[in-house]
């Protein structure tokens, strides 16, 4: 259970990026956070991942307060951020420093299989396409079996085809072990295809404006009437958020 209590962040230059953010995410739930720039979306993930510390409030995972990067929380960035001097396999194994030999090899292979890139294990990152690189990044985050996976606009740099493909892929992976996913995005369709709940943010400082439940069975049909209805609802909320900025 991931609990965010009254989270707030003020940066050194007195910019209030986030204010009074409270949210509880159940194990295995997928929550999308959506909003324009200045809504503190990225700040939110930096606080939960422990990369930055909150100015106010707290992040708790199963009752433990998170102040620095936590073994059960992993973050997938907007860019793949692969380490260019490691092969694909060693990038995936980056978080397995304590595990060696055959065990390590098997875990890497399994993670690469999950993202469908088992045959690229010995390549260098420079030899991958954007979509492949992002999949390796997902495998790298998965290999340590996190309970909470944070995703910061993970597919926004990809073309529409690759993006839809990776969204399906992510759902497939999620379905196997059901980790908690907290996804920040500015793509309405992405939020609605993936999430159980969509949190709509408003800017300056970033706060929660609205919450929309997406009660549709997966895998969701983007063209169905029910999808359209929720989409209209979300558009309306985003419109309000936009007018406040």
């Amino acid at each position: 259970m991931l609990t965010l209590r009254n989270l707030g962040k003020t940066y050194a230059n007195d910019v209030r990026a986030l204010e009074g953010f409270s949210l509880t995410v159940a194990p295995g739930e997928i929550v999308a956070v959506i909003g324009g720039s200045g809504c503190g979306k990225s700040t939110l993930l930096r606080l939960i991942s422990g990369l930055d510390n909150a100015s106010r409030g707290s992040v708790e995972l199963n009752g433990d307060v998170v102040r620095q990067p936590h073994p059960l929380i992993n973050l997938i960035f907007q860019e793949p951020r692969l380490l260019p001097w490691l092969t694909v396999a060693n990038n995936v194994g980056f978080g397995l420093a304590e595990i060696e030999g055959e065990d390590r090899r098997q875990q890497i292979e399994l993670a690469l299989k999950k993202v469908g890139l088992a045959d690229l294990a010995q390549r260098w990152p420079k030899e991958l396409s954007g979509g492949q690189a992002q999949r390796v990044a997902i495998a790298r985050a998965l290999v340590t079996q996190p309970e909470v996976l944070l995703l910061d606009e993970p597919f926004s740099a990809l073309d529409a085809f690759t993006r839809a493909d990776l969204q399906d892929h992510l759902l497939g992976i999620w379905d196997e072990t059901r980790p908690t996913l907290l996804l920040v995005t500015h793509d309405i369709d992405e939020a609605l295809v993936l999430a159980d709940r969509v949190i709509v943010m408003r800017p300056w400082p970033g706060r929660i404006l609205d919450e929309i439940k997406v009660d549709l069975p997966r895998k969701r049909d983007r063209t169905s009437a029910a999808f359209e209805t929720v989409k209209r609802q979300l558009f309306k909320a985003l419109d309000t958020s936009l007018q406040l900025s």
């Binding site: 990369l51 073994p71 951020r81 978080g95 420093a97």
Partner: peptide
């Protein structure tokens, strides 16, 4: 910084 953050996420 981005690559250092990857290290930090894995608690190095």
């Amino acid at each position: 910084r981005k690559i250092v953050e990857v290290g930090r996420i894995f608690r190095l």
